[in-house]
Write a protein that binds this DNA or RNA. Structure first.
Lengths: 227, 227
DNA sequence: GATGATTTGTACGTATGTATA
DNA sequence: ATATACATACGTACAAATCAT
């Protein structure tokens, strides 16, 4: 449960990106990927040492993460990886289902021909990876599928808040991907969404996506009970 | 177009709140209320002088505001009050309508008896204020009405992102309140939403709210054209 | 409950990047 | 094209709050 090790701490900044941005992206990634578990403390000085920078950029990165909801900060105390209550998680999953449904409905109406073809290709590729039995690659293909639908909504704000919600939930959806057959079930659910989008049927796309996310929530139920 | 003047810059902090939190709340309020117009630069040193603090808490406050979308930051250049494109604004209004509709539908199903009664009272008070011809008080009553519905959803996450979206849009909804008769129209629209919520009709509540927000968007159209 | 150790909150100086003349 | 102005990005020092003993 550690940060990924960093390269030589180049003195001022690195290639056009500020240290704050680098730290924020790295820590966010560690949380989203599950390398930093909910409830784990994030001490400024420790992180600063680890990356070879001062506390200033670390503080700013942590503040950004708090604003995005990935961590919680308490006055004069260490920040923690966010650990929402079961009740709040349930609410977040409900919102997630509705936001994804909105994206799917918008995508059905707004996607270009090229985007529709790319979506079909992503879906086919997802199926191939599942048959190959590679859960990590399958997971990544799944993410790309959903992200393509967000972008297909042609509504940047909607895409942003949907992605942000997805990222905030990802530490709590991890358990699902360990379950055998979960990816195959997801693929079947995706198929209904793809079909609806390709025939420009917004309501069906929304319903299909809503059902898909609801299934994901059910799969996570046991995990939440353990909190 | 200035910051509201501050009281004596008490040295360390004031009453349990950090300077960063105070600055963030104050500047956010100035943007939401329209005292700081979109595109206006926010210089760290200038704000620090104005509030009698160092640049450090100002930087952190500005970073929070950027994360919440109220301002934009550019590397090594002054931050600006957010000035979204017309296209992005349109997307934000669409999302706003859907989020408010979700809140209304959830409120129809989840509100307690006390909350329903409070909502009816708020709606009645709104009508009284409009007849009294006080646009500022009417505006505030309107805000309270919407906020009561967010809370009535009993979904904190949904309430938070809906409120955040509302706040980000508020600088661009200002024009509407100048229009004569707009508040009376809003009141009539609210009535349909209240009726639906009171009889626990979620779909009707959602439809009523969606139509209400769409009307608001139309009213703002001319303003966006001027950008 | 008091005290020392630890950690966050703020101040301030310097270096670096961006824009403009 | 170079220089100059200007605002941010980061480092460092200290103050204040929290925690542990």
């Amino acid at each position: 449960m550690e940060f990924k090790t960093r390269d030589p701490p180049a003195r001022p900044v690195l290639a056009g990106r500020t240290w704050t941005a680098t730290l924020r992206a790295t820590i966010a990634d560690d949380i989203i990927r599950g390398h930093l578990a909910p409830g784990m403390p994030l001490e400024e000085a420790e992180i600063a040492r680890r990356f070879g920078v001062s506390r200033t950029p670390v503080r700013e990165a942590l503040r950004d993460l708090a604003a995005s909801g990935l961590i919680e900060t308490r006055s004069h105390r260490s920040a923690l990886v966010a650990r929402p209550s079961a009740e709040r998680l349930r609410g977040m999953f409900e919102v997630m289902a509705e936001l994804e449904a909105l994206c799917a409905a918008a995508a059905a109406g707004q996607m270009t021909a090229a985007e529709r073809e790319a979506l079909r290709a992503l879906h086919a590729g997802f199926g191939t990876l599942i048959q190959a039995g590679d859960p990590q690659a399958g997971h990544e293909a799944n993410e790309r599928f959903h992200t393509a639908i967000y972008a297909g909504s042609h509504n940047d704000y909607l895409a942003e808040i949907t992605l942000a919600t997805r990222e905030r939930l990802s530490p709590f959806r991890r358990a699902q991907f360990r379950a055998e057959g979960q990816l195959a079930l997801s693929h079947a659910e995706h198929g209904r969404v793809v079909d609806a989008i390709l025939r420009r049927d917004g309501p069906a796309a929304a319903a299909g996506m809503r059902a898909h996310i609801a299934i994901v929530e059910t799969a996570y139920g046991r995990y939440a009970g353990a909190l």
